[in-house]
């Protein structure tokens, strides 16, 4: 029986090459663009790095993950946001893809995890304050 043996070094180089090629086609999380979708009756401060809303209020945000490499995120990439403490700030999906509703449930601070394609990529500081 005749078999072809690939040298171990060649296999390693081939594997690494394939890996590099695969990852090179994937976006690499850099940051999150956040846009306010509604105007709540009480002041809210929404930035890509921190959210602050008043208790009892809810705001719609539209987010867009920004890739750090040349490969942008596309619509089929899943973006989820989950609160580390829902008793402070709850986050529920909005009516559109990549839209979310932040809900001021209780006074305090927490962090909102940004989960992209199943992997936690970021954590955004979140604060709920008293109504003015």
């Amino acid at each position: 029986m005749h078999t072809t043996r690939i040298p171990r070094t060649s296999a390693l180089v081939l594997g690494l090459g394939l890996l590099a090629a695969t990852t090179a086609c994937q976006p690499d999380y850099g940051s999150l663009e956040v846009e306010l979708g509604t105007t709540p009756p009480a002041a809210a401060s929404i930035h890509s790095t921190d959210f602050q809303i008043q208790i009892g209020t809810a705001v719609l945000i539209n987010v867009k993950p920004v890739s750090a490499n040349r490969n942008d995120y596309i619509e089929t990439d899943t973006v989820e946001m989950t609160s580390q403490d829902r008793t402070v700030m709850d986050v529920e999906p909005g009516p559109e893809a990549w839209s979310f509703v932040l809900i001021g449930a209780g006074i305090g601070e927490t962090c909102i995890d940004v989960v992209i394609n199943g992997a936690v990529e970021d954590c955004i500081d979140a604060r709920v304050v008293e109504q003015e």
Partner: peptide, 9 residues
């Protein structure tokens, strides 16, 4: 389950 489709304050 939890999708918020509208809001009213």
């Amino acid at each position: 389950a939890s999708e918020v489709i509208d809001i009213k304050h």
